[in-house]
Computed example of a mutant assay.
Amino acid sequence: MAGNALIFILLSGLGSLPSCFPRQYHLVEKSVNWTEAQSYCRQHYTDLATVTSEEDVTKLNDALGSFRGGHVWIGLYGDIHSWRWSLQNKSYYGEGEAEFRMWYSGEPSTYYIDEYCVPMNTGGTWWDYYCSSSLPFVCYNDRTKGSSRWILVNERKTWSDAQSYCRQRYTDLASIRNLAENEEIRGLINDTSWIGLFRDAWKWSDGSTMSFSKWADNHPSEGDKHCVASHLGKWLDYSCSNRFYFVCYRDVVNMQVVKVRLQSASSADLEAKKDELLQQLRQRLKDQGVSDDVQLRWVTQPDGRVFHKEGKEEEKDEESCGP
C-alpha cells in the first residue's frame, strides 16, 4: 500500500508538464527557391516554418521585423508525389503493388487546384480529377473472391462520399495492384468511375498535416504553383522556383524542474526504485496524451543521490553519525 501511495504522489507532482513546445521563428534574408530554403532550414534550424494557429501567424509576422511587407517562404507545399490508396492495410499489397499505376498520357497533370483524386476511364487509364466531382465508383469487398470482389455502384458521388459508402457497406474503394485487376475493373465500368487512389492536398515540410489555413483571396490558384509564401499574414501559392527570403523555425525546449515530497521509510529505498518509478511516470504521462517530445529524468545532487530526507529528519541523521 505504501508503495502505491508513493507512486501516486510522484505522478501527481509531475503531471502538469506541458505536452508541446513553442516554436521560435527566424527570418533568413537570402533570396532562394523553396527547395533551397528547406535545405537551409533543416541544416541550421529544425525546418521551414510550420504555422498552425493565429498565434503562430502573429509570431511569424513579428519575426519579420522591418521585412513584414515582403514575401517569405514558409513550409507549406503541395506534395504532388504523395499518391496512395484509400485502403491502407499493408498486408493487402505485395512488393511494389501499392505503387502500380495506369496513368493516361500526360497524367497526373497537377495543374488545376483540387485535382487530388483519381478515376478510371472506360479505356482503363487513370487521371487526377476534382474530388468534388460526382461520379460512379467501384468498391472492394474482402469477403468475396475473384472478380465478384469488385462492386460497381452506379450512383454519382464525390470521392469522399464514395469512400464513406464503400467503407460502410463493403471494405473500401477499389485498390488496383496489377494489370489483371485493372482489366477486371475496366470490364466492369461503363463510365468514368472513382477508384481509391488519392493524394494529400497540402502538407508541411516537417511532415505535419495541415489543420489550419490562412489563404489570401483567390488562393490557392490554378497552375504549377505548389509552394507557399506568406505576405502580410496571408498565404499565396507560387511556383517553387521563385526566389524569396524565408522563415525557419526551431523548437524551443523548456526545462521544468519539479520538486516532489515522498513518504518512505528511507531514501535508500527510493534510490533503489528510482528507475522503476521514472518508467511508471513516463507511462502515466503517455496515457494522459502527453507528447513523446517530453523527456523526463531525475536531477542528481552533488553527492550523487536523487532523494534526500528533509528538515528535522535530515538533521537527526547528521547528529546520529558517529566515528
Rank of each mutant, 00 (worst) to 15 (best):
Y92V: 11
P108T: 08
R177E: 06
D172M: 07
G94T: 05
Y116V: 09
A180R: 15
N178S: 14
G123Y: 14
N190F: 10
S175E: 07
K145T: 14
L135H: 04
R156T: 12
K145E: 14
R68I: 15
C166S: 02
L87H: 05
G106I: 10
Y92A: 08
S148M: 09
I176G: 00
G70H: 11
L76I: 05
E97Y: 08
Y93W: 11
M102P: 00
V138I: 12
W83N: 01
E155K: 15
V138D: 00
A180Q: 13
S109A: 14
P108F: 05
S193F: 04
K157R: 15
T192S: 10
R156P: 01
G75M: 03
T144H: 10
W103C: 07
G70D: 13
M120I: 12
C139Q: 02
F137D: 00
E115D: 11
E95D: 13
C131G: 14
L173Y: 01
L179H: 08
G123A: 15
W150K: 01
Y77M: 08
K145F: 14
I189R: 00
I151F: 08
Y93K: 03
W150G: 00
K145G: 04
C117A: 15
Q163H: 11
D191C: 05
S164H: 13
Y170K: 04
Q163N: 14
G78Q: 03
A63W: 04
M102W: 05
G78A: 11
I80L: 13
V138R: 01
K157T: 03
S66R: 13
I189A: 02
N89M: 10
Q168S: 15
I80P: 00
V153K: 03
H81C: 06
L179T: 09
L64N: 02
C166A: 07
S109Y: 07
I151N: 06
R68G: 04
L87N: 03
S109H: 12
A162P: 00
W194G: 01
S91A: 13
R167F: 11
V118G: 00
R101S: 13
R177D: 03
Q163V: 02
S147M: 10
A174P: 00
W194K: 02
R149W: 05
N141E: 14
L76D: 00
G75Y: 04
Y140P: 00
W103T: 03
R149Y: 06
N182P: 01
H81L: 12
P119S: 08
R186W: 07
C117T: 09
S91H: 10
P108H: 07
R101T: 13
S134T: 12
F67M: 09
R169M: 09
S105E: 12
A63L: 07
K203V: 13
S193Y: 03
G106C: 09
T144D: 10
R177I: 06
N89A: 11
W194F: 09
R68Q: 13
W202E: 07
T171M: 06
L179R: 09
D142N: 15
N141W: 11
E95K: 11
D200G: 09
A63R: 04
